[in-house]
Amino acid sequence: MIKKAPLPNLSPDPGSDILRSISAGLASMSAGQQRIAAMILENPHWAMQANVEDLALRAGVSAPTIVRFARTVGCDGLRDLKLRLAAALAVGAPYLHRSVTPGDSTAEVVRNIVGSITSVLSDWQHQLIPADIEQAAEIMHRARRVDCFGTGATSNFLAMDMQARLFRLGITTNAFSDAHLQLVAAATQTEEDVLFAISYVGRMPTLVEAVAVGKEHGATVIALTQTNTPLAAIADIVLSIDVPHDATMRVGTDAYVVQLLMIEILMVIIGLKRGPTMINSLREIHDILLTRGVDSDDPSLLHWGWNQVLHSGKDEASEF
């Protein structure tokens, strides 16, 4: 009978940073242990608070495997592992990024941050409900008007981006960030309209109030927000963006990226619903921007633009 080599103790002393020790020992771990390690490194705050059953379920292993992993990384058990996680989180670098630990090299920072967002996107994809996305796309496709509301720097940008995309699809659309204009727009909506509210935090009182007004006037409310928020509670359709909270930003990179992806998904589905005519229209828009846009890669267009300006100046001068 072949004896297996003992697993290495990955934590050299009780005072070491457990997150760094886990990260350093990834290469020597089994596939199951690597899944547990990745889960902890991706969201140590959650791992510190979760029970053994939740940890096992998310990592796809058994509960005893979680306990064995804790001992493998030099802890007395799961409770000791959580205490060391708490100590590691208290001393700092997760306030820059939850996947970065003090002393990480540039290569490690790149690997950890890219790996973190990849893991977040995978988890988020599995949470999505295609039927809700389909319903939202169908209603927007048939709407008389779609008003995009976003309050705050990120939400406002996303609302404007969505308005620009819907406009290209031939949908009558607006984007509002001002609280008063949101109320005015909401008050003019009807049962034929859609109010698309964007807010990761989902608690801005003025936005929630404007959404309530739109709903009172019969509009269908679609919310791009977290599941358990006041905005989600009032929406007819919730497109959830439940991702780990950022250490420093109210709307971190994870939230920003998944919101952009949801908008992209919606626009593609709506475009397909609008059929070949819309696709031909988009092709024409692309060709016009390519051949007539002054920011094209074709340098001759830049000269063409300057010639237009110069000729225009000469024509104005000749009038005097």
Rank of each mutant, 00 (worst) to 15 (best):
A47P: 12
M48Q: 12
M48D: 03
Q49H: 02
A50N: 00
N51G: 13
V52G: 10
E53R: 12
D54V: 06
V61C: 01
V61K: 12
V61M: 11
A63W: 00
T65V: 05
T72F: 10
V73T: 01
L78K: 14
A86H: 14
L89A: 04
G92R: 00
L96N: 10
H97A: 15
R98G: 01
S99P: 07
G103Q: 11
A107K: 02
A107D: 01
E108D: 09
I113G: 14
I113C: 12
V114W: 10
V120C: 00
S122C: 07
L128E: 09
P130G: 00
E134I: 10
E134L: 10
E134R: 00
Q135R: 14
Q135M: 02
I139T: 13
M140Y: 01
R144D: 08
F149Y: 15
G150I: 06
G150S: 10
G152T: 04
A153I: 04
A153R: 06
T154Y: 11
F157Y: 09
L158M: 01
A159M: 04
M160R: 15
D161R: 07
M162Q: 14
R165E: 11
I171L: 14
I171Q: 15
T172A: 14
T172V: 15
T173L: 04
F176I: 06
L183I: 11
L183H: 15
V184M: 05
A185E: 02
